[in-house]
Protein backbone atom coordinates (compact mmCIF):
# COMPACT_ATOMS: atom_id res chain seq x y z
CA UNK A 1 0.00 0.00 0.00
CA UNK A 2 1.22 3.50 -0.79
CA UNK A 3 1.67 6.21 1.82
CA UNK A 4 -1.44 7.84 0.39
CA UNK A 5 -3.56 4.71 0.81
CA UNK A 6 -2.24 4.11 4.32
CA UNK A 7 -3.00 7.64 5.46
CA UNK A 8 -6.47 7.68 3.92
CA UNK A 9 -7.26 4.23 5.34
CA UNK A 10 -6.27 5.33 8.84
CA UNK A 11 -8.40 8.45 8.59
CA UNK A 12 -11.36 6.52 7.22
CA UNK A 13 -11.18 3.99 10.05
CA UNK A 14 -11.76 6.72 12.66
CA UNK A 15 -15.23 7.28 14.09
CA UNK A 16 -16.80 10.44 12.72
CA UNK A 17 -19.93 12.33 13.65
CA UNK A 18 -21.86 14.57 11.27
CA UNK A 19 -20.36 18.08 11.28
CA UNK A 20 -22.22 21.29 12.02
CA UNK A 21 -22.33 23.63 9.03
CA UNK A 22 -20.98 27.06 10.03
CA UNK A 23 -22.77 30.12 8.66
CA UNK A 24 -19.85 32.26 7.56
CA UNK A 25 -21.95 34.71 5.56
CA UNK A 26 -24.20 35.39 8.55
CA UNK A 27 -21.19 36.22 10.70
CA UNK A 28 -19.94 38.88 8.33
CA UNK A 29 -23.47 40.08 7.69
CA UNK A 30 -23.84 40.70 11.42
CA UNK A 31 -20.39 41.98 12.37
CA UNK A 32 -19.28 43.41 9.04
CA UNK A 33 -18.70 47.15 8.79
CA UNK A 34 -21.58 49.45 7.76
CA UNK A 35 -19.97 52.40 6.10
CA UNK A 36 -21.01 54.81 3.41
CA UNK A 37 -18.66 55.34 0.50
CA UNK A 38 -16.62 58.10 2.12
CA UNK A 39 -16.36 56.36 5.48
CA UNK A 40 -15.16 53.17 3.83
CA UNK A 41 -12.50 55.03 1.87
CA UNK A 42 -11.35 56.95 4.91
CA UNK A 43 -11.07 53.77 6.93
CA UNK A 44 -9.20 52.03 4.13
CA UNK A 45 -6.74 54.91 3.85
CA UNK A 46 -6.21 55.16 7.62
CA UNK A 47 -5.48 51.45 7.83
CA UNK A 48 -3.05 51.55 4.93
CA UNK A 49 -1.31 54.63 6.28
CA UNK A 50 -0.93 52.96 9.67
CA UNK A 51 1.39 50.50 7.95
CA UNK A 52 3.40 53.12 6.10
CA UNK A 53 1.59 53.16 2.77
CA UNK A 54 1.52 56.46 0.85
CA UNK A 55 -1.91 57.30 -0.46
CA UNK A 56 -2.21 59.82 -3.27
CA UNK A 57 -5.83 60.74 -3.96
CA UNK A 58 -6.47 61.59 -7.58
CA UNK A 59 -9.05 61.42 -10.37
CA UNK A 60 -9.19 59.74 -13.75
CA UNK A 61 -7.99 62.91 -15.43
CA UNK A 62 -4.95 63.62 -13.31
CA UNK A 63 -3.53 60.35 -12.01
CA UNK A 64 -0.78 60.12 -14.68
CA UNK A 65 0.36 63.59 -13.64
CA UNK A 66 0.31 62.61 -9.95
CA UNK A 67 2.29 59.48 -10.74
CA UNK A 68 4.91 61.52 -12.55
CA UNK A 69 5.24 63.83 -9.54
CA UNK A 70 5.59 60.92 -7.16
CA UNK A 71 8.26 59.30 -9.30
CA UNK A 72 10.17 62.55 -9.56
CA UNK A 73 10.08 63.07 -5.81
CA UNK A 74 11.70 59.72 -5.11
CA UNK A 75 15.09 58.19 -5.85
CA UNK A 76 13.67 56.20 -8.74
CA UNK A 77 15.91 55.90 -11.80
CA UNK A 78 14.23 52.97 -13.50
CA UNK A 79 10.61 51.93 -13.55
CA UNK A 80 8.91 48.82 -14.82
CA UNK A 81 5.46 49.09 -16.38
CA UNK A 82 3.15 47.43 -18.88
CA UNK A 83 2.73 49.81 -21.86
CA UNK A 84 0.48 47.30 -23.64
CA UNK A 85 -2.28 47.91 -21.08
CA UNK A 86 -4.44 51.04 -21.20
CA UNK A 87 -3.25 52.32 -17.82
CA UNK A 88 0.33 51.35 -18.61
CA UNK A 89 0.20 53.37 -21.84
CA UNK A 90 -1.07 56.43 -19.95
CA UNK A 91 1.65 56.07 -17.34
CA UNK A 92 4.25 55.62 -20.05
CA UNK A 93 3.12 58.82 -21.77
CA UNK A 94 3.33 60.75 -18.51
CA UNK A 95 6.76 59.43 -17.57
CA UNK A 96 8.64 59.19 -20.84
CA UNK A 97 9.72 62.83 -20.75
CA UNK A 98 11.56 62.42 -17.46
CA UNK A 99 15.20 62.43 -18.60
CA UNK A 100 16.44 60.85 -15.37
CA UNK A 101 14.16 57.85 -15.67
CA UNK A 102 14.55 54.64 -17.67
CA UNK A 103 11.27 52.91 -18.45
CA UNK A 104 11.25 49.14 -18.73
CA UNK A 105 8.62 46.63 -19.65
CA UNK A 106 8.26 42.98 -18.76
CA UNK A 107 8.68 41.92 -22.37
CA UNK A 108 10.29 38.52 -21.87
CA UNK A 109 10.15 35.73 -19.30
CA UNK A 110 11.77 36.58 -15.99
CA UNK A 111 14.42 33.88 -16.40
CA UNK A 112 16.06 35.95 -19.13
CA UNK A 113 16.59 39.06 -17.03
CA UNK A 114 16.34 38.09 -13.35
CA UNK A 115 19.58 39.84 -12.53
CA UNK A 116 18.47 43.11 -14.00
CA UNK A 117 15.08 42.87 -12.32
CA UNK A 118 16.70 42.30 -8.94
CA UNK A 119 19.64 44.63 -9.17
CA UNK A 120 18.73 47.36 -11.58
CA UNK A 121 15.02 48.09 -11.30
CA UNK A 122 14.00 50.69 -8.74
CA UNK A 123 10.25 50.62 -9.09
CA UNK A 124 7.24 49.09 -10.76
CA UNK A 125 3.80 50.37 -11.63
CA UNK A 126 0.80 48.01 -11.70
CA UNK A 127 -2.95 48.15 -11.48
CA UNK A 128 -4.95 46.73 -8.60
CA UNK A 129 -7.93 44.41 -8.94
CA UNK A 130 -9.90 45.72 -5.97
CA UNK A 131 -9.52 46.95 -2.40
CA UNK A 132 -10.70 45.91 1.06
CA UNK A 133 -11.70 48.67 3.46
CA UNK A 134 -11.78 46.85 6.80
CA UNK A 135 -8.15 45.80 6.77
CA UNK A 136 -6.65 48.45 4.48
CA UNK A 137 -5.82 46.07 1.67
CA UNK A 138 -5.16 45.97 -2.07
CA UNK A 139 -5.98 42.84 -4.02
CA UNK A 140 -3.70 41.91 -6.91
CA UNK A 141 -4.29 39.24 -9.50
CA UNK A 142 -1.02 39.34 -11.42
CA UNK A 143 -1.19 38.20 -15.05
CA UNK A 144 0.92 37.95 -18.18
CA UNK A 145 0.92 41.74 -18.57
CA UNK A 146 1.80 42.53 -14.98
CA UNK A 147 3.59 39.47 -13.59
CA UNK A 148 3.92 38.53 -9.92
CA UNK A 149 7.44 39.82 -9.39
CA UNK A 150 6.47 43.37 -10.37
CA UNK A 151 4.83 44.00 -7.02
CA UNK A 152 7.53 42.11 -5.16
CA UNK A 153 11.07 42.64 -6.35
CA UNK A 154 11.56 46.38 -7.09
CA UNK A 155 11.99 48.44 -3.89
CA UNK A 156 9.10 50.79 -4.72
CA UNK A 157 5.67 49.71 -5.89
CA UNK A 158 3.29 52.27 -7.43
CA UNK A 159 -0.23 50.84 -7.46
CA UNK A 160 -3.15 52.26 -9.39
CA UNK A 161 -6.36 51.69 -7.48
CA UNK A 162 -9.81 52.48 -8.82
CA UNK A 163 -11.57 53.27 -5.55
CA UNK A 164 -14.94 52.25 -6.97
CA UNK A 165 -13.74 48.67 -6.52
CA UNK A 166 -13.42 49.00 -2.75
CA UNK A 167 -15.22 46.23 -0.83
CA UNK A 168 -16.11 46.45 2.84
CA UNK A 169 -14.29 43.28 3.89
CA UNK A 170 -12.48 40.23 2.54
CA UNK A 171 -15.60 38.09 2.65
CA UNK A 172 -17.55 40.56 0.53
CA UNK A 173 -14.70 40.86 -1.97
CA UNK A 174 -14.40 37.10 -2.34
CA UNK A 175 -18.12 36.36 -2.62
CA UNK A 176 -19.15 39.36 -4.79
CA UNK A 177 -16.36 38.60 -7.22
CA UNK A 178 -17.11 34.86 -7.12
CA UNK A 179 -13.52 33.82 -6.45
CA UNK A 180 -14.49 30.23 -5.64
CA UNK A 181 -15.53 29.82 -9.29
CA UNK A 182 -11.96 30.17 -10.46
CA UNK A 183 -8.71 31.34 -8.97
CA UNK A 184 -5.79 32.74 -10.95
CA UNK A 185 -2.26 31.31 -10.77
CA UNK A 186 -1.57 33.70 -7.92
CA UNK A 187 -3.88 36.02 -6.03
CA UNK A 188 -2.50 38.40 -3.44
CA UNK A 189 -3.73 40.57 -0.66
CA UNK A 190 -1.23 43.35 -0.04
CA UNK A 191 -1.53 45.53 3.04
CA UNK A 192 1.44 47.86 3.07
CA UNK A 193 5.11 47.55 2.16
CA UNK A 194 6.95 44.47 3.43
CA UNK A 195 7.88 44.51 7.09
CA UNK A 196 9.23 42.45 9.97
CA UNK A 197 9.32 42.59 13.74
CA UNK A 198 11.61 39.60 14.08
CA UNK A 199 14.39 41.51 15.82
CA UNK A 200 13.32 42.20 19.36
CA UNK A 201 9.79 42.99 18.18
CA UNK A 202 10.99 46.24 16.62
CA UNK A 203 9.04 47.02 13.48
CA UNK A 204 11.17 47.60 10.37
CA UNK A 205 9.93 48.13 6.82
CA UNK A 206 11.47 46.79 3.63
CA UNK A 207 12.17 43.24 4.75
CA UNK A 208 12.31 41.30 1.47
CA UNK A 209 9.61 42.90 -0.63
CA UNK A 210 9.13 46.60 -1.46
CA UNK A 211 10.18 49.23 1.07
CA UNK A 212 7.67 51.72 -0.29
CA UNK A 213 4.12 51.26 -1.44
CA UNK A 214 2.54 54.26 -3.13
CA UNK A 215 -1.15 53.99 -4.00
CA UNK A 216 -2.66 56.27 -6.62
CA UNK A 217 -6.22 56.11 -5.40
CA UNK A 218 -8.47 57.21 -8.23
CA UNK A 219 -11.70 58.74 -6.92
CA UNK A 220 -15.00 58.85 -8.80
CA UNK A 221 -16.03 62.28 -10.14
CA UNK A 222 -18.49 62.99 -7.34
CA UNK A 223 -15.85 62.74 -4.61
CA UNK A 224 -13.26 65.38 -3.87
CA UNK A 225 -9.97 64.91 -2.10
CA UNK A 226 -11.14 67.30 0.63
CA UNK A 227 -13.99 64.94 1.51
CA UNK A 228 -11.49 62.23 2.32
CA UNK A 229 -9.03 64.18 4.40
CA UNK A 230 -9.75 65.68 7.78
CA UNK A 231 -9.86 69.45 7.68
CA UNK A 232 -7.62 69.51 10.72
Amino acid sequence: MSARDNILAKLRAAPRSAPVEPDIAAHFEHFGPRWNEVEALRHWAAMMRSVKTDIVWCHAADWPQRLAEQVKARPVRSLLLAPQTAHGALAHAALEHNPLLTLKSFDRVVDEWKDELFNDTDAAFTAVRCGIAATGTLVLWPDADEPRTMSLVPPTHFALFDTRTLHADFHTAMTREAWPNGMPTNALLVSGPSKTADIQLTLAYGAHGPRDLVVLAVLPHHLTVAQLEDAA
Binding site: V51, R108, V109, A144, R148, T185, L189, A197
Partner: peptide
Protein backbone atom coordinates in the same frame (compact mmCIF):
# COMPACT_ATOMS: atom_id res chain seq x y z
CA UNK B 1 -0.80 35.67 16.74
CA UNK B 2 0.53 39.20 16.65
CA UNK B 3 -2.49 41.45 17.14
CA UNK B 4 -2.39 42.59 13.51
CA UNK B 5 -5.72 43.08 11.70
CA UNK B 6 -4.05 41.51 8.67
CA UNK B 7 -0.54 40.62 7.55
CA UNK B 8 1.25 42.46 4.76
CA UNK B 9 0.79 39.57 2.35
CA UNK B 10 -1.76 36.85 1.91
CA UNK B 11 -0.39 34.76 -0.91
CA UNK B 12 -2.82 32.40 -2.66
CA UNK B 13 -1.19 29.99 -5.09
CA UNK B 14 -3.33 27.82 -7.34
CA UNK B 15 -1.04 26.68 -10.13
CA UNK B 16 2.44 26.75 -11.61
CA UNK B 17 3.31 29.30 -14.31
CA UNK B 18 0.78 28.99 -17.13
CA UNK B 19 1.59 29.29 -20.82
CA UNK B 20 2.08 32.94 -21.64
CA UNK B 21 2.84 33.98 -18.05
CA UNK B 22 6.29 35.46 -17.60
CA UNK B 23 7.25 34.47 -14.08
CA UNK B 24 6.43 32.07 -11.29
Amino acid sequence: AIGQPITTYFNMISSPRKTGEKDG
